[in-house]
Amino acid sequence: MIRFGPWSTTLGLAAGFGALVAFLLWRAPGNRAAHRLLAALLLVAVLRLMPYVLGFAGAYDAWPWLSFAPFQLGLAIGPLLYLYLLRLATPALPPRWGWHLLPAALELAYLLGAFALPLGRKMAWNNHVHEPWIAPLLDVAGAVSLAAYLVLAVQLRRRYLQWLREHVSDQDARRQPWIGTTLAALGLWLLVSTGFDLYSSVVDKLNYYDRFPQYLAFSAIVLWLGLEGWRYAGHPFVQMATAVVAPPAIPAPAPSAATRDWHATAANWRAQIRDQGWWRQPGLTLADVARHLGTNENYVSRAFNLGTGQNFNAVINAMRVEAVQSRMLADHGAELLTLALDCGFSSKASFNRVFRAQAGASPSAWRAAHITKISAMAPFEATSPGPRT
């Protein structure tokens, strides 16, 4: 008899929510490849819950042929995580990316083959081969795979954040908290899974019911990933460009560092950026500036680094801070946020962080200090003696 009690219902609600979000992500516009990879990751997590949703409801007792239904695809979690983050950070997946999913495909093929066996042979295979040998091997392989792909994903995140620091002027675009959230969620998944497996192997064999807290934790992770994944589905992710081609009429120069006057080149380009007002564009990127200048990103980045000792981001934000300071002194009552947005900052938080880093004080404190200084100097200027006759 099938009966959904508190345990099966709790896990079932989490599984249903995860499946719904996966469906919505699959159909979501925007970065479809990334959305569908996240949807697949959520579905794999939901499938992991299903043996316990059904088991606690008595489905396996009522329908023993459900054994070996392909619910647990542990070898798919790590590759899907890595490919999802890679597609968020880059314009396209690399060639032959599907090879990452080959172990998961083999795991699926094994489960489908065992699922198709007659019930008697299936039970014998489970008792004499699967449980003592193959199941522990799949558990270890899944944990090792997820750990390895987490390392790759953390390295990818570091490269991506470094690229953002060098190529994007918008501080908010450089934060990307969702990537860190995804890594934390899957890291917690690995920690919980490995912890329960080690306890069962070393301390005391855990039965089906002893595993409920493990799957309750998995349910919480599914809810977390689903909520945050849908929240950030429409979030714009600046992607690392694989190549930027200069306009054909103005090929990118390639002089040696020893002969090029990088100071003069950087000064000339800074003047162009300032005069043309490109720095006022929120979210301005190194690719945008290179396109305006008719050259490539690497050359512009090298000119700023060698010619000014600053990266692109620091150069652009210095111009924005100088412009805000000038306008604050010209209009003491101007709204700070209005000045910030007019000068290219995308948010108040971004403006405050950059201004404090550049000026050593908050915008309001800097303005108050300079207004006080100007007010203190005014009486001396008003009473200064005229020229002698």
Rank of each mutant, 00 (worst) to 15 (best):
S8Q: 10
T9V: 11
T9S: 14
T10I: 00
L13D: 03
V21W: 03
A28G: 05
H35S: 11
L37I: 11
L38A: 11
L38E: 11
A40V: 08
L41C: 13
L42V: 05
A45W: 03
M50G: 01
P51Y: 05
Y52L: 08
W65T: 07
S67L: 14
L75T: 13
A76T: 03
A76S: 13
R87P: 02
R87S: 14
P91A: 09
L93S: 05
L93N: 04
L102F: 12
L102C: 02
L106A: 13
G113V: 11
A114M: 12
R121K: 08
K122A: 14
M123R: 13
P132D: 04
D139I: 12
A141T: 09
A143V: 00
A143R: 08
S145C: 12
S145D: 10
L146F: 06
A147I: 04
Y160V: 12
Q162K: 10
H167V: 00
S169N: 03
D170E: 11
Q176K: 11
P177A: 10
I179P: 01
T181H: 13
L183H: 07
L188V: 10
W189Q: 01
L191S: 06
V192F: 03
V192G: 02
F196Y: 14
L198H: 07
V202M: 09
K205V: 07
L206C: 02
F212S: 03
Q214G: 02
Q214F: 02
G226A: 13
G226R: 06
G234R: 14
P236T: 14
F237G: 04
M240S: 10
V245D: 06
V245K: 04
A246I: 02
A258C: 05
W262T: 07
T265M: 09
A266C: 05
N268H: 13
W269T: 01
I273Y: 00
G277F: 07
R280A: 06
Q281G: 00
P282D: 04
A287D: 08
R291W: 04
R291M: 05
L293H: 02
T295K: 04
V300N: 00
S301K: 04
G307I: 03
T308K: 12
N317I: 02
M328K: 11
A330S: 15
D342I: 01
C343P: 01
C343M: 10
F345H: 00
Q358G: 00
S362A: 13
P363D: 11
W366S: 04
R367N: 12
T372V: 10
M377L: 15
M377H: 05
A378H: 06
E381P: 00
G386H: 11
P387F: 13
R388C: 09
